[in-house]
């Protein structure tokens, strides 16, 4: 290999890649969440009977007191923008045009929430405290992923 190189800089480095593939097990609570999204177009939460805290995404256990939580229950996919950002760069650092709005949405009636895109709204019209709801893909197109939610949009 070295003999073929004409640029002396080329012997200074050796390129390498790591092929990385996994399947991530969703688990009992995670599957309940993804099934709610895929099959019923809603989210799911689980409650700690001792702390009375509703986890969303649901957990099998309470991270505050370590008790086992109750069975996950369905929760409507709507809530409030707790914070948001307008992203001007994609994962490779290239300009994003148009920019993408991401928000952490605190889901109503729970202590939990999720980060997702905001849509059907201009960046200038988004504010902390904005009420939003999920826009789901058509049932036939859902695969059991957070991407079954296209984005969240302002309520009404």
């Amino acid at each position: 290999m070295r003999e073929k190189l004409t640029n002396p800089e080329d012997v200074r480095t050796w390129p390498g890649t790591i092929p990385v593939e996994y399947v991530y097990t969703a688990g009992v609570a995670g599957e309940a969440y993804l099934r709610a999204i895929k099959e019923r177009g809603c989210l799911a939460a689980s409650t700690c009977p001792d702390c009375n805290i509703d986890y969303l995404p649901p957990r099998l256990y309470c991270e505050r007191c370590f008790a086992k939580t109750d069975e996950p229950r369905d929760v409507a996919a709507r809530g409030v923008v707790e914070t948001f950002t307008v992203a001007h760069r994609d994962l490779d650092g290239r300009p994003l045009e148009p920019p993408v709005i991401y928000a952490f949405v605190r889901i109503a009636g729970t202590a939990g929430g999720l980060i997702h895109r905001l849509g059907d709204v201009e960046p200038g019209d988004v504010h902390i405290g904005l009420e939003v709801e999920a826009v789901f893909r058509p049932p036939a197109e859902r695969v059991g992923s957070i991407l079954d939610i296209e984005h969240f949009k302002p309520v009404g």
């Binding site: 996994y22 993804l34 995404p57 914070t83 948001f84 760069r89 952490f104 902390i128 991407l147």
Partner: peptide, 22 residues
């Protein structure tokens, strides 16, 4: 998080934007 967050495919610094705004 590979299931709840990463599928969005966002640049990691979007989380800094969210943190800063809050």
């Amino acid at each position: 998080d590979p299931i709840y967050h990463r599928p969005l495919g966002a640049h990691p610094y979007h989380l800094a934007g969210l943190e800063m705004n809050r």
